[in-house]
């Protein structure tokens, strides 16, 4: 078993606040790993540390066998990674085609490959009709799609996706799911965070749950579900079991 991502006691503090507290992640190659947690649990902070967008306060990070805390090895790992960060990474003044050309050339891909893959990706994600529109004029969903196209363009071995389905329409969401399934099917790895448990349940093979900066569960989807639904297990782990007595009394009054 080779590990695509491995962390040991990964920690990040913002002043006195521990956003991520000593988590040990182990993501096998070829898996579709869903990283779940309530709002503010530390998902995005973790993904930022895994991709080199944020320096950890402590612990180690290995991505694709490279130590991300070593500058040279981090660059080498980045050659094989695709990322959709939480706040995206687009240039306001470039068109979709230009942005993909830019990303492709940064990855030192041949020009013809960049062209053909960009055309395919833009067409697949329904961005091919946007002509000379700049990314600053895109809606949030379109920006997400463009970021997805850029992440896939270099044909990476590992994809980090922070909320990739947020703000994306149903048709594109289906397309992205199919692409990701194809991606994992050929032996690549996806590390995904999402609030939509149905998507995680449908796509992921493995799941990690982070609560208040601590990894409270990490196993295969089947092992976590244990015959129940992922939602129930997640709520249980997140410490927010459904309590029918918690109601807003004033909502029960008749509407005026």
């Amino acid at each position: 078993m080779t590990l695509a991502i491995e962390t040991h006691q990964l920690t990040r503090y913002f002043n006195d606040f521990g956003a991520v507290r000593g988590i040990d992640l182990a993501v096998e190659s070829g898996t579709f790993y869903g990283f779940l947690g309530p709002n503010g649990a530390g998902k995005s902070t973790t993904i930022k540390m895994l991709t080199g967008l944020l320096a950890p306060s402590g612990g180690t990070v290995q991505v694709l066998g490279r130590n991300m805390l070593d500058r040279r090895e981090a660059l080498e790992a980045k050659r094989h990674m695709g990322v959709i960060p939480e706040d995206l990474a687009l240039f306001d003044n470039l068109t979709a085609q230009e942005y993909l050309t830019f990303v492709g050339r940064i990855h030192q891909m041949p020009r013809d490959t960049i062209r053909s893959r960009s055309d395919e990706l833009l067409s697949l994600l329904d961005l091919n009709n946007e002509g000379k529109k700049l990314s600053l004029e895109y809606s949030h969903g379109m920006k997400k799609k463009l970021a997805m196209a850029a992440a896939l363009l270099p044909n990476p071995d590992l994809l980090f996706l922070d909320e990739p389905f947020e703000g994306v329409d149903a048709v594109t969401s289906r397309v992205i799911r199919d692409v990701l399934a194809q991606f994992v099917g050929r032996g690549s790895t996806v590390f995904l965070t999402s609030h939509v448990l149905e998507i995680v349940e449908r796509l992921c093979t493995h799941v990690g749950i982070i609560v208040k900066g601590e990894l409270v569960e990490q196993a295969s989807l089947e092992a976590i579900r244990q015959g129940s639904s992922l939602e129930d297990r997640f709520l249980e782990k997140a410490g927010a079991e459904h309590d029918s007595s918690r109601k807003l009394n004033w909502l029960e009054e008749a509407a005026s």
């Binding site: 080498e76 240039f91 306001d92 990855h107």
Partner: peptide, 15 residues
């Protein structure tokens, strides 16, 4: 002036 675009550089393998 890169704003969010600077992430591309941080994420990239370019020296």
């Amino acid at each position: 002036f890169d704003r969010d675009g600077f992430r591309v550089f941080v994420l990239s393998a370019a020296s």
